[in-house]
Nucleic acid binder design. Structure first.
Length: 576
RNA sequence: CGGGGCGUAGCGCAGCUUGGUAGCGCGCUGCCUUUGGGAGGCAGAGGCCGCGGGUUCAAAUCCCGCCGCCCCGACCA
């Protein structure tokens, strides 16, 4: 490719909208251009790179026995209503109405399409297992698109769906995908961690995220210093004394203080009450109220810990759960900031985190404005319906596997794989006939990779002050040949010759034949991130040498002009 | 959805406070000089100053509404 013909105009200054490295560089280096919030055009360089990522994904999926197909983007609403996601996905789904008034949605994921598809085609255990995938644009009307390709409303995704006859089969399919995913992320040159995660909107049980480590990532995870345990903050398990026991540690009645009200004017936060009463936060009982499908849920947790909403949601599944808003409190007879678990009605579900098991004589809200109580005790003053792990894990907590110390990391979720079980096959009545003549729902797994996000994550991990430093597996081109003096015939002639020789060898090479100054071309070469640069100039013609540079390391070398093409290929073979 | 900010040439911005008919840098076109890390000179092209109302003799500037974009937050009592 000749740069003079390439549709790529680099920007000296970054558009004001970008403020993270990957976004800035992908814009400046002419990989992407914005069309609307979270919606981008991939320019020739960006699309060429995306095709490479696609090829890696496709190869590994095919090698793992999955079959590629193509499902539509515009989808009818009915299956989504059957699985309940027309509601639960809510505004995250782009919804449209056709001329007949029928409701349609733009596909945010495709369980609702692939499941009826398989059920309609296959009806026997003999057909299983099967794994289908597609590489397709997905649409999610994100609450807040940001960071360019990192969180777009339209993004390229590879989604795969496995169908098995039982849980063992599903787990086997899952393991195969896990391996394929490791290879995909390895080959893409990403530094990543596989972490246990929250299933979120997709549902199901065991699931893992592949998180590309990056300082700008939106996702936090915990990992153990001494073992392999790693988990998303939403999913990480808190080890608490007595967890798993049905009942709390009994408190001797003689040790119970009387329940007393104290005035705490204006102190509505744990911190303020703790300071006002001179009691540590660990002696405070925090009582959070949630709405679960119209019912009230009270969640108790020790004052120094925070509740993990996702865990509450899982505990109350399948009811949709949300924290009380300001209107809920007066409507249901509570005072925000002064809620306590005493005299909760029978219609209120009281959940308690394991951190509450060992406490006694709690300080908690008095259920009226500007007052708290002291000496609140389980059993005597309030009841607990269920004990659960509901706390947000934090750095320094013990690892649930080996007790080691958990550390916090930050990154970008590049991929997410799930063991779905029958989460979709049941509501969609997708069943097959098993060996014993029984109808059973398919046991499914699903596996997603954000290809556009992989590009952005790779840019976050592979750049320096001058620009992008792609690993060669996902660089749009491998080598750039830069003649520095376009008015010097020998320079141009040698550059052309080396360019043709490299092309002849099948090398993906760009000749920067623009009539620009050397500085412009060299800076663009660094910015765009070709793994290898070959520079031909007046000086080099005189000395018979070409200058080579390995972009990622900055390592420079020289080679005789006659063998410069081969030298470039050798250098490329050493590139990451 | 809440809060904050911004919308002026392709990109980055100034002008707005105190209304007077639009400017700078980069980029773009032409010519000359220059030529190994974003050159210099000369001459140019390019603007419904986001959109719609209002105030005024006069609005990029003041007022109202809308739209778009960016950032922060999204409730831990």
């Amino acid at each position: 490719m000749r740069f003079s013909k390439l549709f790529a105009r680099t920007l000296r200054e970054a558009p004001a909208e970008a403020d993270v490295a990957s976004h800035v560089l992908l814009l400046r280096a002419a990989y992407i251009r914005k069309v609307a919030a979270g919606i981008y055009t991939l320019l020739p360089l960006g699309w060429r790179q995306m095709r490479k990522i696609e090829a890696i994904v496709r190869e590994e999926m095919d090698a793992a026995g999955a079959q590629e197909l193509r499902m539509p983007i515009v989808l009818p609403a009915e299956p989504w209503k059957e699985t309940g996601r027309w509601e639960t996905y809510g505004d995250l789904m782009f919804k449209v109405t056709d001329r007949h008034g029928r409701e349609l949605g733009l596909g945010p994921t495709h369980e609702e399409v692939v499941t009826p598809l398989v059920a309609g085609e296959f009806g026997s255990y003999r057909d299983l297992p099967v794994n289908l995938y597609q590489i397709e644009w997905k649409y999610r009307d994100e609450f807040r698109p940001r960071f360019g390709l990192l969180r777009g409303r339209e993004f390229l995704m590879k989604d795969a769906y496995s169908f098995d006859r039982d849980d063992d089969g599903m787990r086997a399919s899952y393991d195969v995908m896990m391996d394929a995913y490791r290879r995909i992320h390895d080959r893409s040159g990403l530094e990543y961690r596989v972490v246990e995660a929250d299933p979120g909107q997709i549902g199901g049980g065991i699931n893992h995220e592949f998180i590309a480590v990056a300082g700008v990532g939106e996702d936090w995870f915990l990992y153990c210093e001494t073992c392999d345990y790693a988990a998303d903050v939403e999913a990480a398990v808190v080890v608490a004394p007595g967890a798993g026991e049905p009942d709390p540690v009994p408190v001797d009645p003689s040790e119970m203080e009387p329940l007393q009200e104290v005035d705490t004017p204006g102190r509505s936060s744990i911190e303020a009450v703790s300071e006002f009463l001179g009691r540590p936060e660990t002696e405070m009982l925090k009582c959070m109220l949630y709405d679960a499908g119209g019912n009230t849920v009270a969640v108790l947790i020790r004052g120094d810990r925070e509740v993990n909403d996702e865990k509450v949601g899982r505990a109350m599944w399948p009811a949709p759960t949300r924290l009380f808003d300001d209107q809920d409190f007066p409507k249901r007879g509570f005072v925000k900031g002064f809620v306590g678990p005493q005299s909760m009605g029978e219609n209120v579900t009281v959940l308690a985190d394991h951190s509450v098991r060992e406490g006694r004589n709690w300080v908690t809200g008095a259920n009226r404005a500007d007052a708290h109580v002291t000496g609140a005790n389980v059993g005597r003053d309030f009841r607990v319906d269920r004990w659960e792990d509901l706390a947000q894990v934090r750095e320094g907590d013990p690892c649930p596997v080996d007790g080691g110390t958990l550390r916090q990391g930050r990154g970008i979720v590049a991929s997410h794989i799930y063991q779905l079980g029958t989460r979709y096959s049941e509501p969609l009545k997708a069943r097959f006939l098993d060996e014993d003549g029984q109808e059973r729902p398919y046991v499914m797994g699903c596996y997603g990779i954000g290809l556009t996000r992989i590009a952005a994550a790779a840019a976050e991990q592979h750049h320096d002050d001058a620009g992008l430093t792609w690993p060669k597996a996902i660089a749009p081109y491998h080598v750039v040949v830069v003649p520095t003096n376009m008015d010097q015939e020998p320079v141009v002639r040698e550059a052309e010759r080396i360019y043709r020789e490299l092309s002849g060898e099948g090398c993906e090479v760009v000749l920067d034949d623009r009539d620009e100054r050397a500085g412009v071309k060299l800076n663009d070469a660094d910015l765009i991130g070709y793994p290898v640069q070959v520079v031909i100039g007046k000086r080099g013609i005189e000395s018979g040498q070409a200058d080579l540079k390995l972009r990622a390391t900055g390592e420079r070398s020289q080679a005789p002009l006659a063998s410069a093409a081969q030298a470039a290929l050798d250098l490329l073979s050493r590139a990451l």
